[in-house]
Design a protein around this nucleic acid. Structure first.
Lengths: 361, 361
DNA sequence: GCACAGGATGTAACCGGTTACAACGAGGAA
DNA sequence: TTCCTCGTTGTAACCGGTTACATCCTGTGC
């Protein structure tokens, strides 16, 4: 592999000049620059990133760490596009064009992960931490070491840069739709992992909203793992109850699909007998029968904002750390009972005013 | 940030000793090692990867480059888990535990991508190239520079390390199933991107297989972009023909889902009026109605093998470059007409012998 | 003709680890 | 006691870029 020294020698200049040409400062006389560029092209010189990083104190790499949920050994057999994958694509798209690259590291839930992240911190200029990959204390320690932006952390992480989604508002909107437009009162909820703050936040917001409605009750089946299979399991639990809920909301779409299919398998009609709703607005929810009503979150936007914020920090931005909360969007499709299974004692205007801007397709 | 020099000073040893402790050679007296480790822990020393990389001539990073298909600005709105995402998770899982990390870079189809890859080559010890991200000549040039393993390249790339999937065999199995078990003769095929060798390989194999059957014809609609939308478009083309095919195969599942839904939207029954099949075995194909018959490919295994091969090369393996082809698997579900819509003039044993080992769920 | 400004280029120190080689000390053999 | 070995540790060169500073050179103003 040729080095700057080789290029310098062949072009009859010093390494400083080669470096100037590479970094495209216009400090070099055009004729000299062309000579150097010709040699670079000829010998196929590519600067060594380690040497550059060492001397510039800048690696032009950022890391993204997150939990890998719903991917098992069989990989593609599982439930589809993951939250982190969308974030990855979004971040990569922001980075594209800049000279910065993206380094990835996934952990499994429950696994001791911070050692790996610590070692990784020596390879990058900054870190994006997705979800609950790290405990708050570890997160803070990490942030003392290098720029960190947290993605999708629930409220509570002050003094850190955070980009998150408004889970409670999304769940409240869903609860309102189910109770007001459809008039459901006996609700069910399938919760996600107990160690997923997002899941817990959704559960709490939904339960609180429903219980605020006169006569509203929520039958909570906690502890799903965000997979379709755990949705099926939860559905069987609900089917065993003496009173099956009129509608079941879930902490994510994959579990909602599991619930729906299991209910159907046991002979119930969705949404005729039981309505179902999810959270995430993933693609498979659009193709199931009936199409899934859900709460969409701007995952891509989450990644874009977080990446931009991190790059700003790396450039030396001094604005105080803060959290940014992005809005969710209620996506009404057929699995909730729309259109048709609606409460009829309401004046149409009232129900109509709760229709979301965005409708199913 | 503390450096080896700081640690050395505080522990009262030389930097060489600190380095020995870090690299866990057992050349250091236990008592000294413990002292050094204590200081490392206390000051939170993490070695700088650039400096390590420079002196060890090893970055402990490999790159993965691929084309980003089916992801647009709206991200999650699109068609679901991508091929490359599964590969990414598989590779990352192999790397986990080793000290090596994964660097990502995606391009869009048609974009000039090799400049970015070239620059990236300075940051990594080796490169995994997914699909048709690079033209053969560029691929070869890259492989002269550093270890490269190509994933999912169709036959033809000798003199390179390749891990691929047996597209033709998969398509032949599907064609045989459709023509023999179901007795279809007027087939349709929805092709993928012209610049996707995999897609072209599938098309060619399917067409050849069907045309080898007496009376077999294939109506090809080429040039889809692997998205559900392009499947819908292709379905409208087929609906415009004077004779609609009895069965339509597609270069991937997403397009197959698009075809299926568009046919249904126009009032046709799948598989009653037209059978549909795809390729990939993605999750959404399991939840659509009817569930999608498809050809499964071992995507995760592809990533695992490629990663292992690349690591071997980086370690200095000298075995000659070669291609490895992994088998596909016919996954029969309901969209092809199984069970029920079968040719009845066949002795059951014969049809039965064509049933695949793996069945729908 | 001379001093000087400013552009182009070279020199060499530096970034923070690793490692070949040297040095040192203790214990064992002669 | 002396020499040698071996285990432990230190010294310093090196990896391949970048960049502050020095130097050189040309053109300009007086």
């Amino acid at each position: 592999m040729p080095t700057v020294y080789d290029v310098a020698r062949l072009a009859g200049v010093s390494t400083a000049t080669v470096s100037r040409v590479m970094r495209s400062s216009d400090l070099v006389r055009p004729v000299t620059r062309d000579r150097v560029l010709a040699v670079i092209e000829e010998v196929g010189f590519v600067p060594d990133a380690s040497a550059q990083g060492l001397s510039r104190r800048r690696k032009d790499i950022i890391g993204l760490v997150g939990l890998e949920r719903g991917v098992d050994e069989s990989g593609i057999e599982r439930d589809g596009l993951l939250f982190v994958d969308v974030v990855v694509h979004a971040v990569e798209a922001v980075l594209r064009g800049t000279g910065t690259s993206l380094l990835l590291s996934f952990g499994r839930a429950g696994e001791q992960f911070h050692h790996r992240i610590r070692a990784l911190s020596g390879k990058v200029d900054g870190l994006l931490v997705v979800e609950e990959a790290l405990a708050p204390a570890q997160l803070r320690a990490l942030a003392r070491r290098l720029p960190v932006v947290v993605i999708a952390a629930p409220a509570g992480e002050a003094a850190l840069d955070v980009v998150r989604v408004d889970n409670p508002a999304g769940m409240r909107a869903l609860a309102t739709h189910l109770t007001t437009v459809h008039g459901y009162r006996r609700l069910g909820f399938v919760g996600g992992p107990r160690d997923a703050p997002d899941a817990m936040e959704r559960l709490a917001a939904f339960a609180t909203a429903v219980r605020g409605v006169p006569g509203g009750t929520v039958d909570v089946v906690p502890g799903g793992d965000f997979s379709e299979a755990s949705g099926r399991t939860a559905a069987r639990v609900l089917l065993g109850r003496e009173a099956i809920p009129e509608a079941v909301a879930c902490a994510n779409d994959q579990m909602a699909i599991g619930v729906m299919r299991e209910l159907q398998r046991s002979g119930l009609d969705v949404p005729g007998d039981v309505a179902v709703a999810g959270f995430d607005n993933i693609y498979p929810g659009r193709v199931v029968e009936p199409a899934l009503t859900t709460v969409g979150q701007p995952v891509r936007e989450l990644g874009v904002r977080a990446a931009a914020r991190l790059m700003g920090r790396i450039e030396g931005s001094t604005e105080p750390p803060h959290a940014e909360t992005l809005p969710t969007e209620l996506v009404i499709r057929r699995s909730c009972g729309c259109p048709g299974r609606v409460r009829e004692d309401l004046p149409p205007a009232s129900a109509g005013s709760l229709r979301p801007a965005r409708c199913a397709r």
